[in-house]
């Protein structure tokens, strides 16, 4: 009986948490479409989330693209199919690895900093202070970050895809003896518009998730430094898992016809 009660309590708590998160999402969306809009905060978020993420996105994609080329070559050799390296690198980066890796990097870099910043504001009463200054925290803090992340992530993913393919290209032409011109030709010929669209859509969805989850955990932080730590950790874990889950469903929707 106590075991049942414990399971029941956990399920109820989980449903309650899901309900709170759903309300938070709906609240955010409703504030996006209502004025006022804080342009300066939006601009700061664009730079923070977009521009300053470029180095980590570039490095992650470059090394992954390179490793991918090596593995495909090694695997392909067994079936005398090593010529498919350009095609598989392109499809692997654009459809899956580009958006997922950039999404996870953004969860690590952006979700954590959003959650820590807002949680610190919460525990130092800065959120209350905003309210006493007739400013809605959802409008001033959440909307600019969520909007900026959603808009800038497709660009980051496009950059990641391109640099990932470049990583594969460098390894293939320098180490594996591929011809440079035909490598590029094969990549371009093989990629479809749908691949690229799916990549960008994934980017937008992952950006939305990363920023929203950071804001949600930050706003819900308990008191004290422990509260900030817990909010940050929870946000990164939740954003990463949600991004991977969303990736599965988006892949399913785009490619499993």
């Amino acid at each position: 009986m106590t075991l049942l009660a414990a399971i029941g309590a956990a399920v109820l708590a989980w449903i309650a948490a899901l309900g709170r998160f759903t309300i938070f999402v709906a609240d955010t969306l409703s504030h996006i479409i209502r004025p006022p809009f804080y342009g300066a905060a939006f601009g700061r978020s664009l730079i923070q989330i977009g521009y300053f993420s470029l180095p980590v996105v570039g490095l992650t994609a470059l090394f992954t693209g390179g490793a991918l080329a090596l593995q495909i070559y090694a695997g392909g050799t067994r079936f005398s199919a090593e010529a498919v390296v350009p095609q598989i690198v392109a499809i692997g980066m654009v459809r899956e690895l580009g958006p997922v890796l950039v999404g996870l990097m953004i969860a690590a870099r952006v979700t954590s900093s959003i959650a820590a910043e807002i949680a610190t504001m919460k525990v130092t009463e800065q959120i209350d202070a905003l309210l006493t200054l007739s400013t809605h925290p959802m409008k001033y803090l959440t909307v600019p970050r969520v909007l900026a992340a959603t808009l800038v992530m497709p660009i980051l993913v496009a950059v990641g895809d391109t640099i990932g393919i470049l990583g594969g290209y460098i390894v293939s032409t320098q180490r594996l003896g591929f011809n440079a011109a035909s490598y590029i030709q094969n990549t371009v010929d093989f990629l479809e518009v749908k691949d690229i669209i799916s990549s960008l859509v994934k980017g937008a969805v992952f950006g939305f998730i990363a920023a929203l989850v950071g804001c949600y955990y930050g706003m819900g932080a308990d008191r004290g430094a422990i509260g900030v730590g817990r909010a940050t950790k929870g946000a990164v874990v939740a954003a990463s898992v949600l991004i991977l889950a969303a990736n599965f469903f988006l892949t399913e929707a785009f490619f499993n016809t």
Binding site: M121, T124, Q126, D128, A129, L131, T132, L133, S134
Partner: peptide
Amino acid sequence: FMDDIGMLFQGGALFDS
């Protein structure tokens, strides 16, 4: 009501950004 009030918070609660 918020338009008519001012509040000094215990810890200041200034926006550090």
